[in-house]
């Protein structure tokens, strides 16, 4: 075990993956000698050479197109998009190409080796284009996996799981926690499973569900709720697609209440998918409407970021309203 922040854990995961398999390559904008604008790929070029860790020209559709080709050839590309806000130029390559590569070829070809890493989320005064949470755009795309870790231990284990998963994976890293979140991380090679939610805390009165940086916010809200004797079951979804409905269903069958929270805007956000599914599967057990605590249906604002974000107080209020319904 070593004390690491999330960036160190991600860097350690990439190092581990590259050491274990020479087919693993890391590339993107400023990823090479400089080690990335957040330093996630620090020292990898020095250790594994310029052919395996390198800068690309500044072109997101090119980075992912290139990565698709490399993955089809049998390499294991880990491509970095500098901010999730800038993944949209590559949307066509991801949605029309990566996601459909295996299906459309009848499994003659696939890009299963592909992993795309991108820092996401707000809380860092990033304004419109350094704050977005685009997971719901991709959740509407069969063929992709979408994963979001909440702390350094999760980040390393899930990233290694993503790199070795035989399907293309989008790995969104909560950049607000890059240095803020620290914890014990095994130095050994370990993987955490994709497609499985994790019950972080058991409770009886209400289920509170989120992912990524929002888990820390949920913890603070739950502390407030527990002071008022509300027993909360806290679940980290971890994988957005394909998501672990069963764990959430089982929890809501027990608690009868659900709050889902994410930073992204409400309309079309992934909480909508979760709410619809739980409503369908737990209808007779629900004691109150499913609450969604999310960002507003606006572009991500700069000055009024605090007002925009679904913070612990908004979640706490939603928990209370749900209990009192």
């Amino acid at each position: 075990m070593a004390k690491m922040n999330m960036l160190q854990a991600i860097n350690n995961a990439l190092d581990t993956a590259m050491a274990a398999d020479e087919r693993v390559l890391c590339f993107g904008e400023d990823v090479g000698g400089f080690g990335g604008v957040f330093r996630a790929t620090s020292h990898l070029q020095q250790k594994y050479g310029k052919t395996r860790c390198f800068n690309t020209p500044l072109v997101e559709q090119g980075i992912i197109g290139f990565a698709n080709g490399l993955a089809a050839q049998g390499s294991i590309p880990v491509a970095e998009i500098q901010f999730a806000d800038y993944i949209f130029p590559a949307f066509d390559q991801i949605v029309n190409e990566s996601a459909k590569f295996r299906y459309r070829s009848g499994n003659l070809f696939n890009v299963g080796g592909l992993t795309i890493r991108a820092p996401y989320g707000g809380g860092i005064s990033g304004g419109h284009y350094h704050s977005q949470s685009p997971e719901a755009y991709f959740a509407h795309t069969p063929g992709l996996k979408v994963v979001v870790p909440r702390n350094p231990h999760q980040a390393k284990g899930l990233l290694l799981g993503a790199i070795r998963d035989p399907n293309p994976v989008l790995f969104f890293e909560p950049k607000r926690l890059y240095r803020a979140s620290t914890g014990d991380v095994p130095e050994s090679d370990y993987e955490l499973p994709l497609g499985e939610a994790e019950i972080i805390k058991e409770g009886d009165d209400i289920t509170v569900l989120g992912w990524g940086a929002q888990m820390e916010v949920i913890e603070r809200a739950v502390e407030l709720a527990e002071k008022e004797s509300i027993s909360c079951e806290v679940i980290d979804l971890r994988t957005i697609l394909p998501w672990d409905a069963q764990t959430v269903i089982d929890s809501v069958l027990k608690t009868g209440r659900l709050v889902v929270t994410h930073e992204a805007p409400l309309t079309g956000g992934f909480a909508g998918e979760i709410a619809a599914t739980i409503q369908d599967r737990c209808f007779l057990y629900l004691e109150s409407p499913i609450a969604r605590v999310t960002g507003l249906d606006t572009p991500f604002p700069l000055t009024l970021e605090k007002e925009y974000l679904p913070d612990h107080l908004k979640i706490f209020e939603a928990i209370k309203a749900n209990i009192e319904f």
Binding site: G65, N96, R104
Partner: peptide, 27 residues
Amino acid sequence: GSAKLHYMTISSPLATQIPQATGYAYG
């Protein structure tokens, strides 16, 4: 598409295969 003849399966979106070819050839 044909794996044994090294002919990548065609897709309709135009030009998407061009950067993929660059990546494939890099490999």
